[in-house]
Amino acid sequence: MSSPSLFKISPPQGYDFDDVGSPVDAELRPIWRISILSLALYKLSRSKTATIRKLHAIYSIISSSRRKELINIYSISQIDLEVRLDPLVDKAILLAVEEDLFSIADGEKISLTSSGEKLAEAIWSDEELMKTEKEFLKKYKVNTFSENKISNYFSS
């Protein structure tokens, strides 16, 4: 007698599964990362283009209250910034490229596309969205997070 195939067995009557879901922190959601990266390109990058290193550094600062506090107290060149290379940032960049929000040139320069710029403008103009992130970004200019200043954190 052959054993029953797993795919031919039906579950017994009476099983009921309720999906109550579980909350996922905003920091773990790709759209949150894409939004932050879009705003970083929109507000803190020349020609709305930046290297992957710069985006990792800005994301690392924005996603950490301790790093934001240090940047608010000291200049970026005065602190030893621990940049965390988050693999989910790379995944968010790839998702944004697939959705035509970002483009990649030379394997390391990320730019906002016209769709990405519309997303960043919509987030920036909506007073209810990403309040704390935008408050942080409003304090700084493009040259605050220049590629030269950022590259110092990756060479050591």
Rank of each mutant, 00 (worst) to 15 (best):
F136D: 04
Y153K: 12
K141R: 01
K138V: 07
K139M: 07
F145P: 03
Y153T: 15
L137M: 02
E127M: 10
T144I: 01
A122S: 13
I123V: 07
F136L: 04
L129R: 13
F145K: 06
F145R: 04
T132F: 12
W124Q: 13
W124Y: 14
M130D: 03
S151K: 14
N143M: 04
K134C: 02
S151V: 07
Y140F: 14
Y153R: 09
K138N: 10
S151R: 12
F145G: 00
V142D: 00
S146D: 10
E133K: 02
V142H: 01
T144E: 08
I123F: 08
D126Y: 14
S146R: 08
S125P: 08
K134F: 01
M130I: 11
S151T: 14
W124P: 11
K138A: 00
A122F: 02
E127F: 11
N143R: 05
Y153C: 09
K141G: 03
M130H: 10
V142Y: 05
E135C: 05
L129S: 09
S151F: 13
I150K: 03
L129F: 09
K138W: 05
K139N: 12
T132D: 14
W124A: 11
A122Q: 09
T132W: 00
E127N: 14
M130T: 05
Y140C: 06
N152M: 15
E147V: 06
I123D: 06
S125I: 09
T144H: 10
M130P: 00
A122K: 06
E133N: 00
K149C: 08
N148W: 04
Y140E: 01
S146Q: 14
V142Q: 03
N152W: 12
Y140K: 01
E127D: 15
T132R: 10
S151H: 08
L129C: 08
F136G: 04
N148K: 11
L137K: 01
T132G: 05
N152R: 14
K131V: 14
D126G: 05
E128R: 12
W124N: 13
T132P: 02
E127V: 10
K149I: 15
E135G: 07
S146E: 11
M130R: 01
E135T: 13
N152V: 07
V142L: 12
T144C: 06
E133I: 06
K141A: 08
E147G: 02
T132A: 09
I123G: 10
S151Q: 09
V142G: 05
K134L: 00
I123P: 12
F136K: 04
E128N: 15
K149S: 15
N148P: 08
E127P: 09
N143K: 06
L129G: 02
V142R: 04
Y153W: 13
L137Y: 00
I123T: 15
K131R: 06
E147D: 13
I123K: 13
F136A: 01
K134A: 02
T144D: 00
E128M: 12
E127A: 03
